[in-house]
């Protein structure tokens, strides 16, 4: 009989500089990378990384100012390349040291960074 899980809403704010350390900790604890998404909040961009372990969810939230660069987590979680390229193409967030960087060619968009408020 598999265990049933009550998923709690769990958002944890993290400094941009601390992101990689936190992600490494989660990886060591056996978490699975689930998704990453960006939201525009008052000209800044909020990024949520979700991690799953035994159906329980942990969300890390970072807030990135315009032009600020974020360290890529593809070193630990390679599948994150899809989300990082997506955020780069739509929101214009710059990720450093990506394991697989499409350099803006992941989505075929008519204009660069269409979802960024600054364009």
């Amino acid at each position: 009989m598999s265990e049933r899980v009550d998923v709690v809403q769990n958002f944890e704010a993290v400094e941009v500089s601390q992101l990689l350390t936190e992600v490494k900790d989660l990886k060591a604890e056996g978490y699975r990378f689930a998704q990453a998404c960006a939201t525009v909040v008052d000209d800044k961009i909020e990024i949520i990384y979700s991690f799953d372990k035994a159906h329980q969810l942990k969300n890390l939230r970072i807030t990135v100012a315009q032009g600020e660069e974020v360290e890529s987590i593809t070193g630990d979680y390679w599948p994150a390349f899809i989300y990082e390229n997506e955020m780069h193409d739509l929101f214009g967030v710059q990720f450093n040291h990506s394991a697989l960087d499409y350099q803006g060619n992941f989505f075929k968009v008519a204009e660069p960074t269409p979802w960024n408020p600054k364009k």
Partner: peptide, 14 residues
């Protein structure tokens, strides 16, 4: 403000 949908295929491409 945001409605995010992440679909399963996204995660299965790797």
């Amino acid at each position: 403000q945001r409605m995010r949908v992440r679909t399963p295929t996204n995660m299965n491409i790797p």
